[in-house]
Design a protein around this nucleic acid. Structure first.
Length: 152
DNA sequence: GCCAACGTTGGC
DNA sequence: GCCAACGTTGGC
């Protein structure tokens, strides 16, 4: 089992939205590195942090489970969709997605500011300068340390 | 709104 | 294949 972090702008789709709908296709990924993680390395049952980005208080706000294997992202073929990609061939789709299932919403979000203060998270990709990837793996040690922070 | 970082595009 | 220009991300 692997651990992940997935970003979403809460104005677009938040942890509360996921809590309400329970399962959601994580669509709109248009970055090859993120696509490769999704397509090649994610498996059903993997765990992921839900991260709120581009908002007042960027934070890890909860966890979710990868609900199944990757499949083609239908929004890439919809001209009306903001993430429409006319170059993606329906017979050989460029963009893939996974369904995610709600697991929990943290009582108190772990803010980016808090996370930066943790020496044990120093190597985490989220905290690296210039990080823009919206989907990436999280080390088991980091996953566990972040859960320890919740107990405080 | 600013701007650094990074990915993508396209001319050569 | 190089690299400048451009677009996007995302914290601040």
């Amino acid at each position: 089992m692997q651990y992940w972090l997935m970003k979403s702008e809460p104005g677009e789709f938040s942890i509360d939205d996921l809590k309400r709908v329970r399962v959601e296709p994580w669509d709109g990924i248009r970055n090859y590195q993120a696509r490769n993680f999704i397509r090649d390395q994610m498996s059903r049952g993997d765990r992921a942090f839900f991260y709120h980005s581009s908002c007042k208080t960027p934070a890890i706000v909860g966890t979710m489970k990868i609900a199944g294997a990757a499949y083609p992202d239908p929004t890439a073929f919809d001209p009306k969709n903001a993430h429409y990609d006319p170059k993606s061939d329906p017979d050989n789709p460029t963009w893939m997605l996974v369904d995610v299932r709600f697991v929990r919403k943290f009582k108190h979000p772990l803010t980016l500011e808090q996370l930066k203060c943790e020496r044990r998270l120093a190597g985490m990709r989220l905290l690296k300068r210039g990080n823009r990837l919206s989907v990436f793996p999280v080390d088991k040690a980091h996953w566990e340390h972040i859960h320890k922070m919740l107990e405080k």
